[in-house]
């Protein structure tokens, strides 16, 4: 059984991102997330640097690591050439690999992201595409987007896009052959197994938390509903 620290160390990004932190706090100073959450990248780096298994376990089971916005503003400022943002990526990876992510509200959301972005990627070859930005779940997109959404064909054609059609161009349909390649890359490089790890732990948690159907199997629709409405404590 590998220790968490070993697991973290296996990721090259930890070597890129962590040299020796002196706790100067410049990362937190520039961090947009630190301003809005009870969040402090400096102390996360200090925890990883400490190598203390118990503390790292606690960290990857907490909401904290999920607060980073991955803007990487920390990277150009660190006087020791560290990159807390990369360290966070590694922590998140290990949190998901070990199933620790289901222990925290923000961590559990990985299932939602997998269901949306993950599905988008595998099924369409895009991270986002017009049909996925549903105005009802995206009220902030405003009335113009609602109009675009309702008149997709005409609007995209008007501005020269190639919506859902063969050949090059914006928003073109990605053909089956390319999607197959994508799938094979995911299978080959561990992307698929990573997806199923997230699903596996999420299903186990759903079951444990009582989101089950008549047969006692996890009911992932109920669970998704729960995640969508699982509210922020700070509100």
């Amino acid at each position: 059984m590998r220790t968490l620290m070993q697991r973290l160390g296996e990721d090259v990004r930890l070597k890129e991102g962590l040299h020796a932190c002196m706790s100067c706090g410049i990362c937190t100073a520039v961090c947009p997330a630190a301003e809005y959450f009870e969040y402090d990248p400096r102390s996360i780096v200090v925890t990883v640097q400490s190598g203390n298994e118990a503390k790292i376990r606690k960290l990857i089971e907490s909401d904290t690591i999920w607060m980073c916005g991955q803007c990487m503003s920390c990277k150009p400022r660190c006087p020791r050439n560290n990159c807390p943002g990369l360290i966070i990526s590694v922590l998140r990876r290990v949190s998901q690999e070990t199933g620790a992510f289901v222990k925290s509200r923000l961590g559990r959301q990985q299932y939602l992201i997998l269901k949306t972005i993950g599905t988008n990627i595998l099924e369409t070859g895009y991270c986002v595409f017009p049909a996925s930005v549903v105005p009802e779940t995206h009220p902030e997109q405003g009335d113009v987007w609602r109009w675009i959404y309702q008149n997709k064909e005409a609007v995209y054609e008007r501005v020269g896009a190639n919506l859902d059609k063969e050949g090059p161009g914006a928003m073109r349909k990605i053909d089956r052959e390319n999607l197959n390649e994508l799938e094979r890359i995911f299978a080959e490089s561990g992307g698929n197994s990573f997806f199923s790890t997230i699903v596996k732990f999420s299903r186990a948690y759903a079951k444990e938390s009582g989101f089950t159907d008549a047969d006692g199997e996890p009911d992932m629709e109920k669970y998704t509903d729960f995640l969508l409405n699982e509210d922020n404590d700070e509100k």
């Binding site: 100067c24 706090g25 937190t28 100073a29 520039v30 402090d40 102390s43 400022r77």
Partner: peptide, 26 residues
């Protein structure tokens, strides 16, 4: 806390950003 950046305000005053590391807050 190490100073992160300085920007200029309209009145030529300066805006500083740092973390108060003892508080753990920007």
């Amino acid at each position: 806390g190490r100073l992160s950046e300085i920007s200029e305000r309209q009145d030529k005053g300066l805006q500083l950003k740092a973390e108060d590391t003892l508080q753990g807050r920007p």
